[in-house]
Write a protein that binds this DNA or RNA. Structure first.
Lengths: 143, 143
DNA sequence: GTTTCATGTAACCTATATAGTTACGTGATT
DNA sequence: AATCACGTAACTATATAGGTTACATGAAAC
């Protein structure tokens, strides 16, 4: 795994689950095909469960399942469920003095632009569902 | 300083320079009002010099100067000069297998959305110049 | 011409954020 | 009762960014 990898893991997992909906997926299995750790998988998917995108069950036939149909889950929902925007506002260190008007003006400008960019980002993701993505590739599904 | 602070430092500095254009500013002075280190200042401003936004001179009356008038420098130019987008594409770790079609499809979607968001971000910054920002605050300039 | 001042860079150190790991608990199924 | 899988806390490892030191170069002052 790497840096901004929560979204990557979440989408990769949901993509596979959209294709294989018959039985639940275990964290261990997911960890294998994403080359990461089961605990990390649980941490990330836990956020998605809280957002109502997944359900989890313990025990023998346990594991993770989609809580909704793939056509009812947009990529934006997944992104927002993780609660971690790509775009973080400029250098807002707590060390900001806090009295420099010039600095404040500059950062307000940047923060505003970031907000607008993020809105566009989410809007683009909102139009894509899991079903759209898996349908677009047909039966060529390995790994 | 903190995380994404290069842009913060660059804009803070250029803002002050737009107000005080008469004499050059030294890296030490800049480091003081931004609460950072002179070497860091030189590293960041070096990028701006390469982009043609600043000039630097050594020696007794040396330091940094704007290479253009404040009304001819947009915030976007500053951002682009730093060469480090806020938005980095999703988890593109080199560990990508590279053969999973599902994963690839998911990441293409995200990458596209990121590109569009970044375009909006730059576009917003393109309409703001240093002169716009310093003019908007009047003579209330401390720190 | 030598001293001083400022930038230019390389090399290294440090702090922080993030992912990975271990360990142990809970509930469900066999 | 044993097994399986999630739930979570606590710790470790690592990658990145910023900070620091050191030294070189060039320009102005003396």
């Amino acid at each position: 795994m790497k840096q901004n990898s929560k979204l990557s893991l979440a989408l990769h997992t949901l993509g596979h689950m959209a294709v294989t909906q018959d039985r639940p997926m275990t964290s261990d299995f997911i960890a294998q095909f994403h080359h990461t750790n089961p605990v990390v998988v649980r941490r990330v998917l836990g956020s998605l469960r809280e957002a109502g995108l997944l359900t989890s069950e313990k025990g023998h036939a346990g594991g993770w399942r989609l809580a909704k149909a793939p056509e009812d889950i947009s990529v934006a929902e997944v992104y927002l469920a993780l609660g971690e925007p790509y775009l973080k506002p400029a250098g807002k260190g707590p060390d900001t003095p806090p009295g420099c008007a010039i600095r404040t003006a500059m950062e307000e400008t940047v923060t505003l632009a970031v907000s607008e960019a993020e809105a566009v980002f989410v809007e683009r993701l909102r139009t894509k569902t899991l079903a759209d993505l898996t349908a677009a590739m047909g039966p060529a599904l390995h790994s």
